[in-house]
Design a protein around this nucleic acid. Structure first.
Lengths: 364, 364
DNA sequence: CGCTTACTGGTAAGCGCTTACAGCACGTCC
DNA sequence: GGACGTGCTGTAAGCGCTTACCAGTAAGCG
């Protein structure tokens, strides 16, 4: 490894070939396991590669065989510079990304991550930058407009998460309908609550809209009353949930018997806010979440929620995208099953605490 | 966008040039803001690009100008297929990655994520795969051996996080010494505890070793007693911490007055385990963490810990790497300051709870 | 012992882009 | 009116790799 390199670290298969005394084609073949190189050739190449610490250039490879082995993942972050307020809301995204990454590894792919700020003026440019560096991209909820997706889909395969399927892109989501229906059923039938409210997430989130819709339908069908109105508008964050509760209590409004939150973060904020005002959960008001992020188990009271198969959603998104990249088709909308997790916050009796502090669950 | 594409979506600047009636050089120049194209030329190119939804190929760009605008990030995950038990331990890594990503965006870089399993036989191959797709890489704690790092550093610039600087790579870490010293000082002097123990993390983690070393030195200097031995070996995870406590209590050992945990996850497990056995925290035993992950605030009791500037560590790692990529040098070891966060678990009085449920903090 | 067959190895063409360099069309200035 | 900028545009040469295609060699066979 003495004089062959030195050219500012950019050494190529030519250097390897020279050192091994073979042609660049042989080097490439050995490196990629193509053909049947003679053992001797093979050894010399491997030795040269080791000696030079040679790492083939991914860009050149990609250019040559038309496959980058990279998938892009885009998600949206709140503020431009900080994540302060959403520490936990990113848990969900990180969990999904983990699933994507794991599934990608099975195919030799890596994952290119990019977040876009809500008000980022270069949002589109940034996303197509990612698209250019990848074989396909996965878009988290609300990271790009429908028209933007349509446009970008001309260039690369696209999978959306918790979005809406379109002619050009495939969506992977979970069964909001079944989950919400099971949840409302539990609250109204099993617990007999008669006045419920839905504390919503972002108004433009497809997941939120689906949950709200089913909540209303199911509650009405159960003959229960719905507390509704602009006062119940949250934003998927803990502080959003806390603010809604604070405002309601300040206005002297009477709380419903159960508050169904759009996601776990919101529920977390709600439980904190209620506790501070001396409202007992679930004694006075029952609270439920949606997602089942890891902390849900550790709350007091532990949170009744609907578990989404977070990692599996990510893995599925990758698998679908991979098949699109490979030229295969896919059904336009993949829906994964959810599971109702009954814990304390809905009014169910606390289960004996198992070793890790998690409560028992019940299928939904 | 009618007949120009169709060639399975792979359209190039030649297509754009043809449609715009200019040369490929002009297209490239317009796209990259090089030169001073005539307004007319510029418009026609832009229109053609829009019409075709053209996205330039990142691989070709990278090959041509020798810059991929990608940094690789490698971290280690426990099991091969699942993250079940470490949900939260990844919080720390995800936070750092977020910082990396944000800093990278300022430079037009994207982040390529890759995890390696502890026992992954292809670990080295996987990492050099990432290296080939990036301009430089950031390695989280213990994702690659020192010799592996040395070898890889021949090919790409490397920055390690919470690792050890070497001749070939730069390290970014935080001030374990100051943090641990302040913590021990608080426990021994302010609270007057005379018997402490350090519940360690992975034995081969540089961070853990530094913390253990300073813990011993500071505790000894304060004239307090140290509880030690193989029984106090943890592994940075909540279940690891819980198991250590369970084993100790089962063996009938008498617990020290304060348990200093290698990180927050461990402390979380310890607190849970103690609570289950009826040991009061901090009444009977004080417990502290290290890191200050978001959940630390929400625990009961809230966790006294040492805050690492998590996102900033990531951002710094990127900045250092970027300067290496740009050919500038860097000092071999960057140390960031930490901050002692006093909450309830050490025995400090609970502060009045502010709106978001976080406790007050004190500089260390 | 010469010829076919079966492989292995080398040469060269290109993947899509950037950019040095050359060319061209104007104006400007004697 | 011709020489000479000035400023934009086009042509072509790579960037490092894969791979089709061909040449060369050794083994198998009559």
């Amino acid at each position: 490894m003495t004089e062959a390199k030195r050219s500012k670290g950019t050494l190529t298969i030519y250097d390897v070939a020279r050192l091994a005394g073979v042609s660049i084609a042989s080097v490439s073949r050995v490196l990629n396991g193509q053909g049947t190189p003679r053992p001797d050739t093979r050894d010399r190449v491997m030795r040269a590669v080791g000696e030079l610490s040679f790492v083939p250039d991914g860009a050149a490879r990609a250019l040559s065989n038309g496959l980058k082995e990279v998938v892009g993942v885009v998600f949206r972050r709140g503020a431009e510079t900080t994540f302060e307020d959403e520490d936990e809301s990113l848990l969900f995204i990180d969990g999904i990304n983990r699933g994507i990454e794991l599934a990608a590894q099975h195919r030799g792919f890596d994952v290119l991550i990019s977040s876009v700020g809500v008000h980022d003026p270069h949002r589109t440019g940034r996303i197509s930058g990612v698209a250019g560096k990848a074989d396909g991209i996965i878009l988290h909820d609300r990271s790009l407009s429908a028209s933007g997706i349509a446009r970008l889909a001309e260039a690369v395969p696209i999978v959306t998460l918790a979005g809406t399927p379109s002619r050009a892109s495939v969506n992977v989501g979970c069964d909001n309908e079944a989950g919400m229906r099971a949840l409302v059923n539990h609250l109204t039938v099993d617990h007999g609550y008669r006045r419920l409210a839905y504390l919503s997430g972002y108004a433009d989130s497809p997941d939120n809209r689906a949950r709200a819709r089913v909540f209303e339908a199911a509650t009405t069908r159960a003959g229960a009353e719905i507390e509704t109105g602009p006062a119940w508008q949250g934003n998927y964050s803990a502080s959003g949930g806390a603010q809604v509760i604070a405002a309601l209590l300040d206005s002297g409004a009477e709380l419903p018997r159960a508050i169904v939150c759009a996601n776990d973060q919101t529920a977390l904020g709600v439980i904190h806010a209620l506790a501070r005002r001396g409202v007992k959960v679930p004694g006075d008001v029952a609270v439920t979440g949606f997602d089942d992020v890891p902390v849900a188990r550790h709350l007091h009271p532990s949170l009744t929620t609907v578990r989404q198969p977070i990692e599996r959603m990510g893995a599925t998104a990758f698998d679908v995208l991979y098949s699109m990249i490979s030229g295969a088709g896919s059904e336009p909308n993949v829906v994964l099953p959810v599971r109702l997790m009954l814990r304390e916050s809905c009014g169910c009796a606390p289960a004996p605490v198992p070793p890790n502090g998690a409560s028992h669950s019940v299928d939904g």
